[in-house]
């Protein structure tokens, strides 16, 4: 109660401020920045400012995330920034992160900055073990991450021990083997040497092409209970909705592809997935909180929208971006050959 009151007082104090502005800190995967926002700004005003500052045009994959109690939420574009349930202590902090994932990174991520932000986010999720990654894929991914960071392998510059300070593998993977750090480095370096000639963005794209085949890539998981009260996990991703046994986040028990879903709705805590095929039973479940329901529905709407957009073909904006990216790539390749 006291906290809620203090938070409300904080908000009214902020709104009373003569300058009519407040400061926000934006944390991206590779930078931190501070902005002064006007009190009347909506989520979209701040989001657009961040995208412009970062130089990102493929903004539809991203969002501004904030922490709320024990969960996360995303800033709504059409709602005032200060009307969100954010901690009002300045600077108000938001994480600029990918909210939606592409079905195919190579086809859909056009700009280098988009690919780079995805690469950094996915790499962190793998190293933090939020995405399960088998040992052999961890080693191959590490070798592409090293290529992206260090450029071509050069035995005269890259002496043994050059990777000693890098975090390259999930701890779980390291613990599965009786291998010294030197032995791991030797293996990663051997594969790194194979990637000669790959530019940073090519190596990062190879990384994403491998990572996107990992079962947990791009899936948002939520604890739910079915009508019988059984604990289950709901997964929301680019392809649809998936129901998992809580002991197995890799293989769904049932999947509902977006194009086979007629309607998704909730009232209070009860969620209902209505399949297109009327012969298939409506799947009803309860999530833990109303706030979680809102987040699930937001992710469903956004992912469904992107799913449909992909099947309609590229917009003019994306066609232009792709043609610019192709020209830029060709120019860089010419430059490299000349050198």
């Amino acid at each position: 109660m006291a906290r809620a009151l203090a938070s409300r007082m904080g908000l009214s104090a902020l709104k009373r401020k003569q300058t009519k502005s407040f400061s926000v800190r934006i944390v991206t995967m590779d930078a931190e920045m501070e902005f002064s926002c006007e009190v009347k700004w909506k989520g979209k005003d701040l989001f657009d400012l961040v995208c412009r500052t970062v130089g990102l045009r493929e903004s539809w994959f991203f969002g501004l995330q904030y922490n709320i109690k024990d969960t996360v939420a995303w800033l709504k574009m059409d709602k005032k920034v200060l009307d969100h349930d954010v901690c009002k202590e300045e600077p108000i902090t938001f994480n600029f992160l990918a909210k939606f994932y592409p079905e195919n990174a190579e086809e859909e991520l056009v700009q280098e900055i988009t690919q780079h932000l995805f690469f950094l986010q996915v790499k962190k999720e793998i190293l933090d073990e939020e995405i399960y990654c088998p040992p052999e894929a961890s080693v191959l991914l590490a070798s592409y991450a090293v290529q992206a960071k260090y450029g071509d392998y050069d035995p005269t510059a890259h002496k043994p021990g050059f990777l000693a300070r890098e975090e390259l593998l999930p701890k779980r993977v390291i613990n599965l083997y009786q291998m010294t750090p030197e032995m791991w480095e030797e293996r990663i370096a051997a594969w790194y040497a194979e990637h000669r000639g790959r530019t940073r963005d090519e190596a990062e794209m190879e990384y994403l092409k491998i990572a996107q085949d990992l079962e947990m890539y791009g899936v948002n998981y939520f604890f739910i209970r079915n009508k019988k009260g059984t604990s289950l996990l709901l997964g929301v991703d680019a392809l649809g909705l998936h129901i998992y046994d809580p002991q197995n986040k890799l293989t769904p028990k049932i999947s509902f592809p977006w194009n086979e879903i007629r309607n998704i709705s909730y009232s209070d805590k009860e969620f209902a997935i209505k399949p297109l095929d009327k012969k298939i039973e409506v799947f009803k479940f309860n999530s833990s909180k109303l706030r979680v329901n809102k987040l699930i529905l937001q992710l469903c709407i956004g992912n469904h929208d992107l799913f449909m957009r992909r099947r309609r073909g590229d917009s003019l904006e994306v066609q232009q971006m792709k043609s610019q990216a192709r020209e830029e790539k060709a120019r860089k390749q010419m430059e490299r050959q000349r050198l």
Partner: peptide
């Protein structure tokens, strides 16, 4: 979509085999 890990399958198999002799018994 093609087979899982499509063109990387050979590399992944090689890495898996090279790690095998060092696997913990509990692993």
């Amino acid at each position: 979509a093609g087979p899982k890990f499509g063109p990387y399958q050979k590399a992944l198999r090689e890495i898996r085999n090279s790690l095998l002799p060092f696997a913990n018994e509990t692993g």
